[in-house]
Structure formats: C-alpha cells, structure tokens
Amino acid sequence: MENEVQVKTEHLVKRYPMGAESFPALQDINLQFMKGEFTGIVGPSGSGKTTLLNIIGTLDKPTEGEALLLGKTISKLTHKEGAKIRNEHLGFIFQTYNLLPVYTVFENVEFPLLLLSMEKKERDEAVWQALEWMQITEKAKVKPNQLSGGQAQRVAIARSIVKKPKIVIADEPTANLDAKNSHRILQLMVDLNKDLQTTFIFSTHDEKVIQYLRRIINLEDGRVASDELVELNGIATQE
C-alpha cells in the first residue's frame, strides 16, 4: 500500500489577479505524493509553497491543470465537499499552533473528533492516545496559555493526528521553536509517520526540518526546481 497515490498534480497552474494582469504563483506543477511520505516543500518566500499547500489541502483551487486528492479532483469539489475531506482525511499544523485558548489541551485535541460526531468513549480513547504519542498527557487539563511553545506545538500535532488522517499538512511547524524543541517535535512526527503511515507534507525553509525529510521539493518562482529523495543521512536520488 506504500505505493498508493495520495496527491497528484498535473500541469497545475495557479494565477492570482493583479489589476489587469495576473501573477503566476504556481506554474506547470507535476507531482505525486505517495502514502507514508515525509516530504518537504522548500523554497524562499514567494516561491509558491503555501499556494501549493493550499491547493493540496482543498483550501484553494487551481487556475489550470488538475490536482487530485485521494482520487478526487480538487477543482470540482464544492466548499462543503472540501470541508468534508479536510475533516475526515487531512490534519493541519500551523507555525503559530492556533490552539483554542478557552479550552483545555484535552478539549483542543478532542475538537476534530466532535466534528466527526464520534462517540464519547471512542473519542476519549483517541484523545488520550494522541496525547500519549505526543508525550503530553500530564498537560491534558491545562489551558494553552500555560504551555511552552514546544508543548503547544505538540498539542497542535496531537490535534492534527487524533483522527488518524491520511495526510498531515504542516506549514513551518518549527518556525517558532528552539532547536531542542524542534528536534523533539520532528522526531515525534517521524515516529508517527512510521507507526501510522501518515503522509506528512511540510512547507519549510528551516534547516532543522530539512534534516528529517525523506523527500525535498524545491520551488523557485512557482516552478519545481528540484525534487529529491533523501536518505536520513544524505541525498539518495536526484531528478
């Protein structure tokens, strides 16, 4: 099942209108993301990383070309269908954690399961399991403002993986963390990737993240400049 295609783009183009002209954010992107990948989209600001994540995450639609997520054509999804796919199959991690401040850690992690209308018993088990994965069970009853940056990001990851999504999309997940916390978070994500076969797609230019990636897609001016498979201790393949 590792060869199962989760995301596929064909001649993907995304343009944003700028007055009478249009600005090409992505041009002719042809990529495939397989199940269990641990991939980073890297590149300087304005290279199109976030735009690509937006389209993969059904938050935006391509201007031209095709993008398929779990076999579904993203451009044909309605808002409601897009929300349903995100709800059931995608997890999101943001660089600023974005935890809901009035709820406890447990409740924050529980929230995606409430959207899935999961039974309480099943929900509780899933939340505790996610907190255990992230080694943060002792903070279950604590509010986000009592957490350190590293702890908050571990909660955010727990929230993204609690429903065991097929794909986790992470936008600069370590941007606000120190080196020690970054490594800890990344190692936890690597473990999850191995244990759950969850596909991780990062947008990053953080060297610490890049060390952990097994595939690096380099974007420059909206085009794929390189797409490399990496062994954990070095570059294995170059296309």
Partner: peptide, 14 residues
C-alpha cells in the same frame, strides 16, 4: 484565528 482553524480543520461554514 479560532474561526480560521476550525474552517481549516474541516468544519463546514454552515
């Protein structure tokens, strides 16, 4: 921010 996260997580606008 909260509303944004909820939309991103797949909560339908309705």
């Amino acid at each position: 921010g909260e509303i944004g996260v909820r939309l991103a997580m797949g909560e339908d606008k309705g």
